[in-house]
């Protein structure tokens, strides 16, 4: 009994220390507005309020292909990848809600691949892992000790260093693919799971209600994408009046699948991401919805962030 009480006390103190140190490590303004758990789970909450113009929501295809800092450097648009590995559309909906709530962006870009990911195919541990990530404030921010040591006595957040990659995952590995011509024209259409269709309807409604333009995009992936999926998405999203841009059909990007993929055509690597980010920036420019902030004094943390981002590239 005495040992059981000791164990409970030990765990109690541990959780108190966890909360205390989490508060120290997390962006404090966001913690104040959204609480520790939510701030730790959604990286976008580490960004200064209402500074992001475009939020890209999706799975690993997004955080491998979209480097917001490359787009910032070339076009001056503020983009953020709100992407997680193997994201389900029900989670995408939450990411969209958090993004809109905290940033009021002009545009949300949703990766089409999440529409085909069936929750039924996820392993039993998926929900548990998600739950654990959500309640582990250290997952995304523990490395902030480096920044906090420098700004120990500072009350306000300095957003320069919080996340210079803005959700992008910098990976330079390269593994070529032997596959060719993966976007062979076809009339086949791949059906979207019904549950995903319902979540998509909710996302469309939520964006309309909040006056945010929603666009569905497909990032280049030889392994994941094909024409049947393209057709399925095109027909489905057009029925809601939503734009669909399939970058797999954009020959101008010119991905070299021998050197610009990290895993045999599944995801792009850093080299591929540079090309794709350039193409995405060009597309955003054409929409006329976003503006160049590079000379705006309110966005100087992005210029400083870009400098650190460049230093971080090996």
């Amino acid at each position: 009994m005495k040992n059981a009480l000791k164990s409970i006390l030990f765990m109690g103190i541990f959780f108190l220390l966890l909360i205390g140190t989490s508060y120290w490590l997390l962006p404090q303004e966001a913690v104040y507005h959204y609480g520790i758990i939510k701030t730790a789970h959604y990286d976008i909450l580490g960004e200064e309020k209402d500074t992001i113009d475009v939020v890209v929501v999706g799975d690993s295809l997004i955080y491998s292909a979209v480097s917001p800092m490359e787009i910032w450097h070339e076009y001056g648009f503020t983009v953020f990848d709100s992407a997680t590995q193997g994201q389900l559309i029900r989670d995408s909906f939450k990411h969209v809600q958090v993004a809109v709530e905290s940033q009021h962006p002009k545009m949300i870009l949703l990766e089409a691949n999440v529409l085909y990911r069936d929750a039924k195919n996820k392993p039993w541990s998926y929900d548990y892992e998600e739950w654990f990530k959500m309640y582990n404030p250290y997952q995304g921010y523990h490395n902030n000790w480096k920044r906090r040591l420098l700004t120990m006595f500072q009350n306000e957040d300095d957003f320069t260093n919080i996340n210079v990659f803005k959700g992008f995952k910098y990976i330079t590995d390269s593994e070529p693919t032997t596959k060719t011509n993966y976007m062979k024209k076809s009339k086949k259409k791949k059906k979207i799971p019904e549950e995903n269709q319902r979540y998509f309807q909710q996302i469309v409604k939520y964006c309309k209600d909040n006056n945010v333009k929603l666009v569905v995009i497909s990032t280049p992936s030889m392994k994941v994408w094909n024409y049947a999926k393209h057709n399925g998405i095109e027909k489905f999203v057009s029925s809601y009046g939503i734009d669909y841009v399939d970058f797999n059909l954009d020959d101008t990007i010119d991905i070299d699948w021998n050197t610009e993929t990290r895993d045999q055509g599944d995801h792009l690597n850093y080299k591929g991401a540079i090309k794709f980010s350039h193409a995405l920036g060009a597309y955003l420019k054409k929409t006329d919805l976003v503006v160049d902030h590079r000379s705006d004094s309110a966005y100087q943390s992005w210029n400083e962030g870009y400098r650190i981002y460049q230093k971080s590239l090996k």
């Binding site: 220390l17 140190t21 523990h142 490395n143 995952k169 910098y170």
Partner: peptide, 12 residues
């Protein structure tokens, strides 16, 4: 807490 804070895990 040395493991939790200084551990090389997560992003990057």
């Amino acid at each position: 807490f040395a493991i939790l804070i200084f551990g090389a895990y997560g992003k990057g």
